[in-house]
């Protein structure tokens, strides 16, 4: 069942990228789809992790929030780069408690921290996240836990 969905998704992807409708090209597309599915089956990677789609409203709302955060922190870092004289930074290494239970939520949280300029995840383990922050302000913003609350809880891989 998963093989069939994977094959149709790959073919859809091929079609969206090529946009051709000639018989020969469609046949070639089907052939390359079958080859990819065969390789994926040989590598044993057609499992539940192949479909990380949980396109719920929560996740969409979170992406909007993340975009806003990225914009704000970008402006902050740009200001710090463009200050004249010595750079106005105070690098910090802080440890945050892991706020999320499922692996995917945890991964989304850690990646969001890295994606916003000014904070980079140094290490991610089961119970804590070590973060390098560019400034005291960025570190304090993370420690309020606002972003941790915004990440949707219990996002599961729909199998």
């Amino acid at each position: 069942m998963r093989t069939i969905t994977a094959a149709s998704l790959i073919f859809l992807f091929w079609f969206m990228l090529s946009g051709h409708t000639g018989a020969l090209l469609i046949a070639l597309g089907v052939l390359s789809t079958l080859l990819s599915v065969y390789l994926a089956k040989r590598m044993n990677i057609i499992d539940h992790e192949g479909y990380p789609f949980d396109l719920s409203v929560r996740l969409l709302r979170y992406f909007l929030y993340l975009g806003k955060e990225i914009l704000i922190s970008n402006v902050d870092v740009i200001k710090r780069i463009l200050t004249l004289g010595p750079v106005d930074i105070s690098p910090q290494v802080i440890t945050l408690p892991a706020a999320k239970k499922t692996d995917l939520s945890q991964m989304i949280y850690a990646n969001s921290i890295t994606l916003t300029p000014g904070t980079v995840t140094l290490e991610l383990s089961n119970d804590k996240i070590i973060v390098h922050a560019l400034s005291k302000k960025g570190a304090a913003d993370l420690q309020t836990g606002e972003m941790a609350r915004a990440v949707p809880d219990n996002v599961e891989l729909s199998s």
Binding site: T114, T116, P117, H132
Partner: peptide
Amino acid sequence: HRFPDFYTRLHAIGITDTL
């Protein structure tokens, strides 16, 4: 070029990679 060490430079790369 303005930031002093590797970890802070990663934040500069963050700008060019995102916005």
